[in-house]
């Protein structure tokens, strides 16, 4: 089947995305019939011929299964426009294999060989948290399914509600709920932990009257009770 370029087709502006990458241009093709997309791609290229002149192109074709004929035509037609197709990215193994057979790359960044040998994973994934650099004043509420980090004070009347833990780098005087979905391992830490009310996994605690200077504290559940302890680097 040859692409029918004679027909006027509806333009699908979102189905073709072009962006610049270090290796040249990356074109991402959206859903849709291959021939339609191919036709509108060529149309786009013809429109901006100067822009594409001599470009090095990588193309993400998504889940499409493309055979040697499709990719070959694509490459040749692009070559006619003086565009070099060097990579095809696809989630389909068939398409990847076909591309490799045609001598096209199937990844954008070429990993350095030594990295492959020493492949010890050194980056730690971490968990979702939100970070706010402001004072949470009376009547305002911060809610998140993950952890919440406040760089500022939580004033009386302010509320923090987290699925995970809460860290307040400042004075914490509002209402704080950690582990609202029942996470008993959630903790609440603050430089000055003096909340109106503190709840971890539904267990409620009220701060005792403060004596002396404020110190960084960590509150957690120990034996079914919320306990606040002075932060001690040695006991970690």
């Amino acid at each position: 089947m040859k692409p029918d370029l004679g027909m006027i087709r509806l333009k699908q502006p979102d189905s073709i995305q072009i962006k610049g990458i270090r290796e040249g241009l990356l074109i991402t093709l959206g859903e849709g019939d291959w021939h339609d997309i191919f036709a509108s791609l060529m149309e786009k290229i013809t429109e901006k011929e100067k822009f594409f002149q001599g470009a090095k192109l990588a193309m993400d074709v998504g889940n499409r299964i493309l055979h040697a004929a499709d990719l070959g035509t694509l490459r040749d037609r692009l070559a006619d426009k003086n565009i070099i197709l060097w990579a095809i990215l696809s989630n389909s193994p068939v398409t990847e294999l076909t591309a490799q057979d045609l001598g096209l790359a199937t990844r954008i960044s070429v990993p350095k060989p030594e990295r492959i040998i020493k492949s010890i994973e050194s980056s730690i994934p971490g968990e979702d948290a939100i970070f706010l650099r402001k004072t949470i004043r009376s009547g305002f509420k911060v809610v998140s399914n993950g952890h919440i980090i406040i760089f500022g004070d939580v004033n009386p009347g302010g509320e923090i509600i987290a699925g995970g833990s809460v860290i307040v780098w400042g004075r914490c005087q509002g209402v704080v709920q950690a582990g609202v979905d029942g996470d008993q391992n959630a903790t609440v830490c603050a430089l000055d932990l003096n909340p109106t009310q503190l709840r971890i996994a539904g267990i409620i605690a009220i701060s005792p009257k403060r004596k002396g200077k404020p110190q960084p504290e960590v509150a957690k559940i120990i034996a079914g009770q919320v306990v606040a302890e002075t932060w001690n680097p040695k006991s970690r």
Partner: peptide
């Protein structure tokens, strides 16, 4: 003071 805090927050918002 509590109400002032609320107002300050609303003004900020």
């Amino acid at each position: 003071v509590r109400d002032a805090d609320r107002i300050i927050g609303l003004v900020e918002a």
